[in-house]
């Protein structure tokens, strides 16, 4: 289980992998043995209906929630039980469901908060405005008054500020118009091209599948199918979308 550091095999170790992860809220079991790998430099899409346990999987993966059983491996190392901040500081960055921004601060102030990790504001702004030119126009606007899509962009910009190696995204598309979602996924694709591994969680599949390298379907706390986006798309239309 514990590969040596200097072995060339390092190339094959997934950056993030869950092994038989079980998790519960109180005594209600939500995850019943989840296995999932995010290999280096890939985009993995985890799809599933409401309450399937997608967000819970993400919380366990980033260390926010402790697994009841099973393991979380990051870069081949067992990090089960390591605190989320520890992992985040090293490059496992999560952008949670909903608005991951401070609504009462301006765009720029939100980016200032991101300097907490030790980066320079100028660098953060460069990356943020480079990826999302629209944020530049709105840098003095209070974040809470921006459109949902713009807020999501800001949340992503803040995530990128900490120079992630792995990015975990929970329901980017929540409450957004299809056009905006497409724009966001365009950026996700760009980010992936720069070599960052990404795990995206979505309920509705279409847009993500265009960006993903690997897709998985989650149902009732288990990964039911995993494969190429095409295979999963077929599976989806025959299975839970009922058409």
């Amino acid at each position: 289980m514990n590969p040596s550091i200097d072995a060339p095999v390092v190339e094959e170790i997934p950056l993030l992998s869950l092994r038989g992860v079980r998790a519960a809220y109180g005594n209600i079991d939500v995850l019943h043995g989840v296995d999932l790998d995010v290999p280096k430099g890939t985009v993995v899409a985890l799809l599933g209906p409401n309450g399937a346990g997608k967000s819970t999987t993400l919380k366990v993966a980033c260390g926010l929630m402790a697994a009841k059983a099973g393991k979380v491996l990051v870069a081949g190392r067992d990090v089960t039980g390591v605190r989320a901040e520890e992992l985040a500081r090293r490059g496992l960055v999560t952008i949670p469901e909903g608005k991951g921004v401070f609504p009462n601060l301006t765009v720029r102030e939100n980016l200032i908060v991101a300097t907490y990790g030790g980066q320079k504001l100028a660098d953060i702004e460069e990356v943020a405005y480079g990826r999302f030119p629209r944020l530049k126009e709105r840098r003095q606007q209070v974040a809470g008054t921006m459109s949902g899509g713009e807020q999501q962009m800001l949340a992503m910009a803040r995530g990128l500020a900490s120079n992630p190696a792995i990015l975990l995204l929970d329901e980017l598309s929540m409450g957004l118009a299809p056009l905006v979602v497409e724009e966001l996924y365009g950026v996700v694709a760009q980010i992936a091209q720069s070599g960052i591994s990404i795990l995206v969680i979505e309920q509705f599949a279409r847009t993500v599948l265009g960006v993903a390298d690997i897709a998985a379907i989650m149902l009732n706390g288990r990964v039911r199918a995993i494969g190429s986006p095409d295979e999963i798309e077929e599976e989806l239309s025959s299975a839970y979308l009922g058409g």
Binding site: I5, V10, L15, K40, G41, V74, A75, G76, R77, V79, G81, V82, R83, E86, R90, G91, V127, N163, A165, I166, S194, G195, I196, S197
Partner: peptide, 24 residues
């Protein structure tokens, strides 16, 4: 942004060197 292979190596190294305490 294109020094990403290095970033992955750096990340792997940092995770490797992480001190794991049995729960703070």
């Amino acid at each position: 942004m294109n020094e990403q292979p290095d970033r992955v190596a750096e990340f792997t190294a940092e995770i490797e060197s992480m001190k794991l305490k049995a729960g703070g």
